[in-house]
Design a protein around this nucleic acid. Structure first.
Length: 480
DNA sequence: TATGATT
């Protein structure tokens, strides 16, 4: 297929068959591939880019020039996809990595081929990635695994140039590492074989093996974190409607609890209260804060008086809600927006608690059908759920015994009544995508967190009771 | 079933 060097070649160049549908694949028709005779290249072989090649030279012409440095695995002249025209450059892979290095140092910018006015280029192809595409981020390692352990794990896939376990200042592993391979291919092979393949001792999820972030991705990540921080410091006020039907179920449940605590005589009061002003409803939520006070308070407060709720708690705990609450004529929005899982209290319904759970279940199963938050206030939930993971000390709750069907959205809905939720995260098994039935909720202030604990710890759902407590600080019993 | 998803 040697196109006559020089000469007046026909403008169309090589025939379509030889021209280039397979420029980049392993065994292109027009490429020079030793084939079965030399099937193997080193696992850490380097693909070279060769530039400043005269248009008249094809693979056969170039071969002798490069064979000098070692056995060639593949040599492919790049041609225009459409016209088939020689692009003046080629990809070259030697069987041995060493050959590539020798060729590069001997040829790169060291000589100029006939007819060219710039020296030949011989360097690792851009696709080899300038380091980034061979560098892996490894996550979910066991804390006790060191560099040697990681090396052992990755060694079968190629030549490891670099291996670093990330550590805290005190030397303990962060459970992740960087591994840099000699080539992109090796790195990819490791990803293929190892990612998700096993769970290391002491890790909470299966092994993560992926390309490390590029500089650009890292910058982007930083930006996002910054944005998240800003959002946390300026939480958008919560429109009351955003609390949604789900909240209603909880309110009614709380009303039922209160009614029970106060004895049969006051039952109807609480039940009615749940359907009255939202101010009253939210007060009822907070009431379990002081169960002792409520239970032992003298029967002095009349039927219209809500027992044992200090004003400061109401203000601090539900601060963001207050303005909207005051502006609302009543609870009509909750019941009339068509989003409530069940209508206002009907006389025949026996157990408000069961009812509450039914409503919850309903909501959890079809979050998008209700989605009052995201529909009415699209900017709101994203600000809450996206980035920032933790609130200040004392603002982060660990919640256990969540219903299996609970997702982040349901978690938010559940804790929204107690304050501004900075983030809510249900833990999900990587492999199955199933909830692990525990999660975290972060508020922007400790009072909300305490209120939520008081109100929701022990909250019964089906056969389970929620366990709601402050998240264990990670430096709990750290020696110093 | 048990404590934030990493660079």
């Amino acid at each position: 297929m040697a196109a006559a060097p020089g000469g007046s070649a026909p403008p169309a160049g090589p025939s379509p068959r030889l021209g280039f549908s397979t420029a980049d694949s392993g065994v292109g028709m027009s490429g020079l591939n030793p084939g079965p005779a030399v099937p193997m290249k080193d696992h850490d072989a380097i693909k070279l880019f060769v530039g400043q090649i005269p248009r008249g030279l094809d693979e056969q012409d170039l071969k002798p020039l490069f064979e000098e440095f070692g056995r060639i695995y593949e040599l492919t002249v790049l041609k225009d996809r459409l016209t088939g025209l020689h692009k003046g450059c080629a990809f070259l892979t030697y069987c041995a990595r060493d050959s590539a290095l020798k060729a590069q140092s001997a040829l790169h910018e060291q000589k100029t081929l006939p007819g060219m006015n710039r020296p030949i280029q011989v360097k690792p192809a851009a696709s080899e990635g300038r380091g980034e595409d061979r560098k892996l981020f490894v996550g979910m390692l066991g804390k006790q695994q060191g560099e040697e352990d990681v090396r052992r794990l990755f060694q079968p896939f190629g030549h490891i140039e670099e291996c670093t376990v990330l550590r805290s200042p005190d030397g303990t592993s962060k459970g992740c590492a960087f591994v840099k391979f000699g080539s992109q291919g090796e790195a990819q092979a490791a990803i293929q074989s190892l990612h998700g393949s096993r769970t290391m001792a002491g890790a909470s999820s299966s092994l993560v093996v992926k390309l490390a972030d590029t500089d650009r991705e890292r910058a982007l990540r930083r930006m996002q974190q910054m944005a998240g921080q800003l959002g946390a410091f300026h939480p958008a006020p919560l429109p009351l409607g955003a609390c949604g039907a789900y909240t209603t179920a909880i309110l009614q449940h709380q009303a039922a609890l209160l009614a029970a605590a106060q004895g049969p005589g006051l039952g109807p009061v609480a039940a009615v209260a749940a359907q009255m002003q939202h101010v009253a409803a939210f007060s009822l939520v907070a009431a379990p804060l002081l169960p002792a006070a409520a239970a032992s308070s003298p029967p002095g407060g009349g039927p219209g008086t809500l027992p044992g709720l200090p004003a400061p708690i109401g203000v601090n705990g539900f601060g963001p809600l207050t303005p909207q609450t005051n502006g609302q004529p009543g609870s009509d929005t909750l019941y009339n927006n068509g989003l409530s899982p069940y209508p206002a209290q009907s006389p025949g319904v026996a157990d408000p608690l069961q009812q509450a759970y039914a409503g919850m279940h309903h909501y959890a199963a079809y979050p998008s059908a209700y989605a009052p938050v995201s529909t009415a206030f699209p900017q709101q939930p994203s600000a809450l759920s996206q980035q920032q993971r933790e609130g200040p000390e004392g603002c982060n709750l660990f919640i256990y015994h969540l219903p299996q069907e609970f997702g982040d959205a349901e978690l938010i809905q559940t804790f929204l009544p107690f304050g501004a939720v900075v983030s809510a995260k249900v833990f999900v098994d990587r492999a199955t995508n199933q909830s692990k039935c525990f999660g975290f909720v972060s508020f922007d202030n400790p009072t909300s967190a305490q209120t939520a604990i008081q109100a929701m710890n022990g909250f019964q759902i089906g056969m389970k009771r929620l366990k709601v407590q402050l998240k264990r600080p990670k430096d709990a019993n750290r020696p110093y």
